[in-house]
Design a binder for these strands. Structure first.
Lengths: 211, 211
DNA sequence: ATTCATAATTATTGATGCAAAATATTCCTG
DNA sequence: CAGGAATATTTTGCATCAATAATTATGAAT
């Protein structure tokens, strides 16, 4: 195996990613303090890069820093989840509208391709969710607003703090597919307002299915 | 003088704030590298808290980190500014809609009070802009979505990277006041859709005035 | 027995030192 | 004089060390 990568990340980035995984897997659970010494020893590193990683995670909202107390995994209330989901719906609906009016034909075709894959994966939960994620992310990329991409990425990380993570994992594949189909139709018609509205409904339904 | 504060901030936070000021004042200009040793000596601190501060600023988008190269002040293109402004308009319009339907009567009265102060400050540019900022921020607080507040705060920081900063400093006080008046009317009528629309127009006009 | 004060322990925060990498400089060669 | 290689210098990145504040434990007094 080779750990070689074209863009070698700094150690603090590496550590941040490892901690993210442990937080998402709830090995580090919300509300629990992060023992710098313990983690540093586990990874065989010093505390300096670890502390830098914690600052990054704090900026993402995954951990909260208390002066002279250290960092603990952020606890997200039900209201927090609702608030974050509300913003995701807002940002992604807007992105969808932008794509409808500004994407190239090739890009729309690409999204159509991803949607086709999604349709074909209706019987494979894991594959479906992975493709669904790719579709949403690709749409965001095509909307080409790096600040929105960053915000959505951060918000999605916060959503993953939730135990159930139900907002994305609802077993409503058929309904979701139907909604995606409606979105694609509006997209291909280049009807921005309708695309936006349907994406918003898509999120709205996701929320209702979760509550 | 006493530097005592109720919530003593960590040194790295203090340093981050100092750097923000220097970046906004363009003493540190976009594209220029940040010399860790130089800054640390200037402030009479070690590089450790400085490096942590840089990680925070990087998360806010104010500086960009390059592996083994350090940090430089982020350069924002015209497209970046337009993209950020687009998001601000989206988020704040949404917040206004939420306020229209969920604020208490007392909170609406408070906004009305701020608006009255704004009307009275039409002849004092600086005071007008300060009050305008307060109105927008208070509205966001009332909308009570801490994640949105954070995002708007970060986006506004990025806007301040711009040399002209024209999107907020346009000399269109009278038009702006008229738009605020229209927003207040819709708010007091608790018409969420109209409030949202008018806030969006308010931003739209601000953008046009700047270009 | 409970509460408050004091001391001890533990953990975070900040400084310093060292190694590695990148850039700048110098010197040599064509 | 130009180009390039080798060396020197600068700067980042990580580790270690020191100090500072907070919490817990301990003990005495009411």
């Amino acid at each position: 195996m080779s750990a070689l990568s074209l863009a070698p990340r700094a150690l603090y980035e590496e550590v941040a990613e490892l901690l993210r995984q442990r937080i998402f897997s709830r090995e580090l659970e919300p509300g629990s303090w992060i023992d710098e010494l313990k983690i540093a020893e586990e990874y065989g590193i010093s505390r300096t890069p670890l502390r830098e990683a914690l600052k990054v995670l704090a900026a993402e909202g995954l951990v909260t820093m208390k002066v002279r107390r250290g960092a603990y995994v952020t606890e997200v209330s039900d209201k927090d989840l609702a608030d974050v989901y509300h913003l995701l719906a807002l940002l992604e609906s807007d992105a969808a509208g932008v794509v409808a009016q500004r994407a190239s034909d090739a890009e729309l075709a690409e999204l159509q391709g991803l949607h086709a894959e999604l349709e074909a994966a209706a019987d494979d939960r894991n594959r479906f969710f992975a493709l669904n994620e790719r579709f949403h992310m690709r749409l965001l990329e095509i909307a080409s607003n790096r600040w929105r991409e960053q915000m959505v990425a951060d918000l999605r990380k916060v959503m993953k703090l939730n135990r159930h993570n139900s907002l994305f994992k609802t077993g409503r594949i058929d309904e979701s597919l139907a909604e995606h189909r409606a979105i694609m139709t509006a997209l291909l018609a280049r009807n921005a307002a309708l695309t936006q509205q349907r994406m918003h409904e898509h999120f709205q339904n996701g929320l209702e299915a979760a509550t």
